[in-house]
Design a protein around this nucleic acid. Structure first.
Lengths: 238, 238
DNA sequence: ATTGCTATGTATAACAA
DNA sequence: TTTGTTATACATAGCAA
């Protein structure tokens, strides 16, 4: 069972490496042939086994292979290297991937935090001293939540043909009301000229870690709402 | 959703074919590079797009590609680019940096989620069905919180020489009690033989994204608690 | 080493935005 | 068209015979 994720590195164990090589070579050849067939393009793969001086080649008929190779070699190097997928390309791809993940997570984080904020307020904890931008985001979250609730009600009414009276008791409507109230509250807050926000720089010393970064698209920026850019979740308690 | 078995034949539809070509080419390149890395063999792939006269090629530098091709044609070897190493090094460094951030954030996330969990339980919401490992983590968070509270009390007593009676009313002691209660509750839970945790494989379909990877220290793993690996935050509400 | 098996990791087809 | 998402098909690591 393929239980591990397989470290992308030279496999030291001899027999394991050979086994992997065999399996993967086969798979690779299949892929090349598939690509060639499905998309009707010329393709070629050459693989040298560690010991065998005889490489495995696709396509099988060397005439075809030679055709591809010749075509390749007959073109100036400058042009050749343009589209080459090299280690560098793969690495860049890797970075992008991680960075993408990071951003994705940050988005999810923010949403989670906002949801928490919403429920806290619903619980009567009061809304922390957040900026207008945050309030707008909150609004979006609430809207989304409302929509979800409405859909839930719809499905209850429609799919199972439940009499509307029976929906009482599911708690859905109460929740909806609460959210609705919250929404109005939000609007009220937003329509009030927001006071100047101080940045009590040194009152947050006991907060956990604080990252810098601004959520822009800089190389390695971090967009978590935790930063020093406004008042945030850590203010809720403690 | 890959619902079809994909007939192994030329894809007539133009845009579909292009899309497939793009995806599969990328996958193929990755495979080639993996094979080369894992088994330490020389390999090369050349793919001509149906329109672009420029082929996509692996491996990296044209010199490397040529080396393979040349070997295939029994020709002298070409030299290796050295600039590559530097570039590669820098890129790897970049990946490390981003990955580190990712991990840091993940830790932070987890802590935040745990804190929320703690307060939710304090609010009498009840503890969700989490595993023992999570409970242990919760314990740590609570401990840390207790410590912070105690320190706060100390500073109040010491620094400003406030009579202990006046500390009542700051809410600190009440909170401390609550946390203490919580702690005991935790211990009670922990001492109860934890029920077998099912992994309702197909009951979480509405969870957000699930990444591959297992949170180990693999190349591009993702260790967020959000995944499919247990019961988590999304279960708290709605 | 080879073959066969199966639990997992990955690739990607069909959609959706 | 590109990008993102999800359900499936597919590839293959680790084992055992």
């Amino acid at each position: 069972m393929a239980r591990k994720k397989v470290k992308l590195a030279w496999i030291a164990n001899d027999s394991a490496r050979r086994a992997t090589f065999k399996k993967r070579k086969k798979g690779l050849m299949k892929k090349v042939s598939e690509l060639s067939t499905l998309c009707g393009v010329e393709a070629c793969a050459i693989i040298y086994g560690s010991e065998d001086p005889q490489p495995d080649v696709w396509p099988s008929t060397s005439s075809e292979a030679h055709r591809v190779l010749t075509r390749f070699k007959s073109m100036p190097e400058m042009e050749q290297s343009k589209k080459m997928m090299n280690q560098e390309g793969l690495l860049r791809q890797g970075i992008s991937k991680v960075k993408e993940q990071l951003k994705k997570q940050q988005r999810e984080n923010r949403k989670f935090v906002l949801t928490q904020l919403m429920y806290q307020t619903l619980d009567g904890k009061g809304l922390p001293d957040v900026g207008t931008e945050v309030l707008h985001e909150l609004e979006d979250v609430i809207e989304e939540k409302m929509k979800a609730i409405e859909e839930r009600i719809e499905s209850l009414r429609g799919a199972t043909s439940v009499p509307s009276q029976l929906i009482n008791g599911t708690g859905v409507e109460m929740e909806m009301e609460a959210v609705q109230r919250q929404k109005w509250f939000m609007e009220a807050v937003l329509n009030n000229p927001p006071q100047e926000q101080h940045h009590h720089q040194h009152q947050h010393q006991h907060q956990p870690t604080v990252y810098y970064g601004n959520g822009g698209d800089d190389q390695f920026a971090n967009g978590m709402p935790y930063g020093d850019h406004g008042s945030w979740p850590n203010h809720f308690y403690t």
